[in-house]
Design a protein around this nucleic acid. Structure first.
Lengths: 165, 165
DNA sequence: GTGATTGTGGATATGCATATCCACAATGCG
DNA sequence: CGCATTGTGGATATGCATATCCACAATCAC
């Protein structure tokens, strides 16, 4: 699955948060329900995201979680990095600890370099707005399932024309 | 690092094995020395690789490990799959358990699809011959460090022309 | 056949990511 | 000010990947 489950939880939470109205904070347990995780556990993930400045958590009545910025201003790398750490910055294929500096350091570095570049590009260029709403299959519980066309979803991802995806 | 450490060990061992003479079997402990792992541990990894038909292990005097096929006939996916399992077949971004069937199932599926495709292509197209010899920095112990241009390294990787790799 | 050498498999520690829970602090409302 | 509500942090299980070791079986040289 490439990403750790914790990072995936964070992505799901951010995606769900991006799907709603920006002005209304979402309760922790409500978010936990959407993501499908115990709220006590998700709260830790959310705390990390808040500490990273990706969302703001307001206490008290009418409190809850809100995105700190517009969803299209939050890149996935920011969401993943606090959880994956250096794992989000792939190194050499045969020596993951080394940063794969010179071209001769690791064989097949050309193919692997393409791989790394695509991976990094994806995390750098894709924003939370692009994954907004999360998995419809999961959110389809209440009368939801709609996908807000607002908030400026999908405003270009770079690396546009490729093979046949 | 994307790949698990066990899978990386396997890749290193295969790369090291591909660097030598195909006719001469390599001792388990010699291979372990090159990879930098206790032989008792690497033996387990090698056993899995042998069971997968990627290398043959001959017992007795003059025994050791040999590649079962020419290095350029062994794709990296074959090496990684026994250790990574389904992790080598990435699914949906927000729902890793689901295979990301239809286009609407996961947002940002276009960008993620590119990512998955590149990842899969790398594993499918790159062969052990491409990573042959392993990390020179590690192998530079004896008079080694040479890189056999034979065996037909880099026989095309697809997804050729990209940005600036 | 005998003995040395080699790989194979199982049983077993260790460490880390993951997950769960509980008590505390902070905030907002009346 | 006091109470209810909310998030925060720490302490704590659990499971799995990783790693280590040891006894056995197979093979080859002599």
């Amino acid at each position: 699955m490439i990403f750790s489950s914790t990072a995936t939880h964070a992505l799901r939470a951010m995606a769900s948060l991006a799907g709603g109205e920006p002005s209304e904070p979402v309760l922790g347990r409500e978010l936990a329900r959407r993501v499908g995780l115990p709220s006590h556990y998700l709260s830790k993930v959310l705390a990390t995201l808040a500490r990273s400045g990706l969302l703001t958590a307001s206490r008290g009545a009418k409190g809850g979680y809100r995105l700190a910025r517009r969803p299209d201003r939050i890149r996935l790398i920011e969401v993943v990095l606090p959880f994956e750490g250096q794992r989000a910055r792939p190194g050499c294929l045969l020596r993951p600890d080394k940063p794969c500096r010179n071209s001769g350091a690791c064989s097949a570095h050309a193919a692997w370099g393409d791989m790394k570049r695509t991976f990094t590009d994806f995390l750098e260029q894709t924003t939370v707005a692009d994954i907004q709403g999360g998995d419809p299959g999961l959110l389809a519980k209440g009368p939801l399932g709609l996908r807000h066309p607002a908030t400026g979803a999908h405003r270009g991802r770079s690396a546009a024309g490729r093979g046949s995806a």
